[in-house]
Design a protein around this nucleic acid. Structure first.
Length: 576
DNA sequence: GCCGTTTTCGGCCCGACTGTTTTCAGTCG
């Protein structure tokens, strides 16, 4: 049983306990365990297999009772406690609580008194006025719930990060132009670079909050203003995205951005931690519980510092071990975009890219890179104008010529060679041997069963010419599920065959994903961060790839393309 | 149900909003 499935069971148990009216702390314990398991970098089945059943207890938030339940789930695929709990309630009732505005109390009353157990039945009961007749319910509440049901139906809940970033950049640029806003930055899951985003949260400081808020609600891309007060507004953009802007006073900025960056779980852990030390945290500052005195903070750094903690990078604020480590000063400096010395996966016009070879190389040079690998598709990918052997040979010649011309950057001859269904590669070994960098990737037969696709990919990695496995899971966020591959086996093969795993910065890919990156890093698997750019502009996706690496706790030393050219070529088995 | 530089028992994050109530329950982030 996978971690995500185990987490779902505990999430559901928490929901059922809420309906039952259990004490909130028990409910929170299950919720916390679910979150922790969901973000755990190692499959618990592997963990138990390799380190024994006791290893579960080491995970924070997992004690005796929950570890027993995990073992039962791993052994039998079922959990007696969960089955019994489910049987106490009508089927499907916890889904009612997915509707904003419906909590456990309302869900129970609706079910008991009105026989409502699905969202459809709920909608009907609102329309014929039955819901409003319940105690503490009224016309207005019912109407709001109905509105939420309708938006749930039309709106995709979460949007891929990459779609949101350019929108945010635009808004920030316009606000800077039109108002006297001083600092402005995103908070929330956007600042943490989660792979999908719900709403956009922006925070800033300004001498004229009201004027700034007004200008914000009047931006051309705004179609609807939901809330507008003196310090805060919520608007809806043309594409349906909701954006909140909050203007705060300078000396409150630190505590507020900390609070709104989250994650929720991180804040809970941080507040529990502070409470044990006699401090109470809120979005306004830090209260000393014995004196009642409140301290305010202009920056987040000061806020964490007052708690005796390192500044915790937003990317890892998930409510795991980060607070504990920050206390010991044990959070390392994570990789940054400026550490990256080159991009190892880009396309040009020759295959399915938009810019010429020289344009890409010059753009890379202008970014300050030392090297860039041109990695076109191979012939098997006809749809992407994959290069025939002859065309690849002629590209090698062109690159050699360009290398003589452009002095300050080294263009590496590469390929993104297709891994065929049987694990063989789409170019002969002899030709692959002439290249500086060989990136291999799966682009077809993605629904092969687990054992088959795992063996296929490992076979390709075992080819001595292959240096990097690109987008290992092949997922497209919100569009295509990852292939069913044994990632742990792939990582072990990577160690044996000296193959690097790619962290692909394309917004719909972000592949490897955060928890796999963390696991690969812990195992010592070499990693690269690449953009898979199909245009000059996409070279900027490096920031997404790097943020994803940071979510996997990577330092520069874990990332191959932070190394100088000579070391990189050594890894690839070339001598420069 | 979890956890321990106050505790192996008795705590457990904090504040705001909304609509329904006449002082607050329920929900949310």
């Amino acid at each position: 049983m996978k971690n995500s499935e185990i987490a779902e069971v505990f999430e559901n148990i928490a929901g059922l306990l809420e309906l039952k009216g259990e004490i909130p702390f028990k409910i929170r314990a299950y919720q916390k365990a679910a979150r922790t398991i969901e973000h755990h970098p190692v499959e618990l089945s592997k963990l138990v297999e390799e380190s024994g059943t006791e290893a579960l207890r080491e995970i924070p938030g997992i004690g005796e009772a929950i570890s027993k339940k995990i073992l039962e789930l791993l052994d039998t695929g079922k959990l007696k406690y969960y089955e019994e709990l489910k049987s106490e309630f009508p089927e499907g009732i916890i889904r009612l609580m997915d509707v904003p505005g419906i909590g456990p109390k309302t869900a129970m009353r609706a079910s008991k008194e009105l026989g409502i157990n699905t969202v459809e039945e709920l909608e009907k009961a609102i329309l014929d006025g039955r819901l409003a007749s319940l105690p503490r319910m009224g016309e207005k509440t019912a109407e709001n719930i109905l509105r939420h049901i309708r938006t749930m139906k039309t709106k995709d809940q979460r949007i891929p990060l990459g779609q949101v970033l350019p929108v945010v950049d635009d808004i920030i640029a316009e606000l800077r132009q039109r108002t006297d806003i001083r600092s402005i930055e995103p908070a929330g899951s956007l600042r943490r670079f989660r792979e999908t985003i719900g709403d956009i949260d922006l925070m800033g400081t300004s001498d004229d909050p009201e004027g700034t808020i007004r200008a914000f609600t009047q931006l051309p891309q705004v179609v609807d203003v939901l809330v507008m007060g003196p310090k805060k507004a919520s608007v809806v953009l043309r594409d349906g995205l909701q954006v909140d802007l909050r203007i705060v006073e300078d000396d409150a900025y630190g505590a507020l951005i900390q609070y709104f960056t989250g994650s929720k779980q991180h804040n809970v852990v941080l507040r529990e931690w502070a409470r044990r030390r006699g401090l109470s945290l809120s979005e306004y500052g830090i209260t000393n519980l014995s004196t009642g005195e409140v301290e305010r903070f202009a920056t987040e750094e000061e806020f964490y510092k007052r708690l005796g903690l390192q500044l915790i990078p937003p990317e890892i604020r998930e409510g795991g071990v980060e607070v504990e480590l920050a206390e010991k000063g044990a959070i390392p400096r994570f990789v940054e975009v400026k550490d990256i010395r080159g991009d190892l996966h880009v396309h040009t016009k020759e295959s399915d890219g938009q810019n010429s070879l020289e344009e890409m190389a010059v753009a890379a040079r202008d970014r300050g890179y030392e090297y860039i690998a041109i990695t076109e598709h191979s012939p098997g990918l006809g749809i992407a104008r994959g290069l025939s052997e002859e065309r690849l040979r002629s590209q090698i010649a062109k690159i050699e010529e360009l290398n003589r011309k452009l002095k300050s950057i080294r263009i590496l001859v590469g390929t993104e060679v297709d891994i065929r269904a049987d694990g063989s590669l789409d170019y002969p070994d002899e030709l692959l041997g002439e290249l500086d960098v060989v990136v291999a990737a799966v682009h077809s037969s993605m629904n092969q069963e687990r054992a088959k696709i795992t063996a296929r990919v490992i076979k390709a990695m075992s080819n001595p010419h292959v240096d990097i496995l690109a987008h290992p899971s092949c997922r497209l966020i919100g569009e295509r599920e990852p292939v069913d591959i044994d990632m742990e086996a792939v990582f072990k093969a990577a160690l044996e065959t000296h193959t690097a795993m790619e962290i692909n910065g394309q917004p719909q890919r972000l592949d490897l994903k955060d928890i796999h990156i963390q696991r690969a890093k812990d195992l010592g698997v070499p990693l690269v961060v690449s953009t898979d750019a199909h245009s000059i502009a996409q070279l900027n996706l490096m920031r997404l790839g790097v943020a994803t690496a940071r979510r996997g706790w990577c330092e520069a030393r874990h990332i191959l393309n932070t190394r100088p050219l000579r070391e990189l070529l050594e890894f690839c088995g070339r001598n420069g």
